[in-house]
Simulated assay, not measured.
Amino acid sequence: MESVDPSLALASSLARAREYAMLTQKQLSEKTGIYQSDISKLERGSANPSISTLKRLADAMDMTLKIEFVPKK
């Protein structure tokens, strides 16, 4: 199995989490104070967020942020 680009995996995970929380990008922006355009960039994988930004997003979606290291096979 090919490894997935971490930026794209994060982008996909964020978009799924937002949809699960039933929030639009605009609503998430309003809850976090993060520009909607920046949320869009994150969901496209064209931005590298800080851990604190990811934590703000998780909190706004009432989710826990989990970051892990997985051994290569």
Rank of each mutant, 00 (worst) to 15 (best):
R16T: 04
R16S: 09
R16H: 03
R16E: 06
R16F: 00
R16A: 07
A17L: 06
A17C: 05
A17Y: 04
A17D: 12
R18F: 04
R18L: 03
E19C: 02
E19V: 00
E19A: 08
E19F: 02
E19W: 00
Y20D: 08
Y20M: 01
Y20R: 10
A21K: 09
A21Y: 12
A21R: 10
A21H: 03
M22A: 11
M22V: 07
M22K: 11
M22F: 12
L23K: 03
L23P: 00
T24C: 12
T24A: 12
K26I: 15
K26H: 15
K26M: 15
K26W: 10
Q27S: 08
Q27A: 06
Q27G: 03
Q27I: 01
L28D: 06
L28T: 03
L28H: 00
L28R: 06
S29D: 10
S29Y: 12
S29L: 11
S29E: 11
S29W: 09
E30G: 10
E30H: 14
E30K: 14
E30S: 13
E30Q: 15
E30W: 13
K31R: 14
K31T: 07
K31E: 10
K31V: 00
T32M: 02
T32K: 04
T32C: 09
T32E: 01
G33P: 10
G33H: 14
I34W: 11
I34F: 13
Y35C: 07
Q36Y: 09
S37Y: 07
D38Q: 15
D38R: 14
D38E: 14
D38S: 14
D38M: 15
D38K: 13
I39K: 05
I39Q: 02
I39P: 01
S40F: 11
S40Q: 10
S40C: 12
K41C: 02
K41E: 02
K41M: 09
K41R: 12
L42D: 03
L42F: 06
E43R: 00
E43G: 06
E43V: 02
R44F: 01
R44S: 11
R44K: 13
R44W: 11
G45D: 00
G45A: 01
G45E: 04
G45K: 00
S46L: 13
S46E: 14
S46I: 14
S46P: 04
A47D: 02
A47Y: 13
A47S: 07
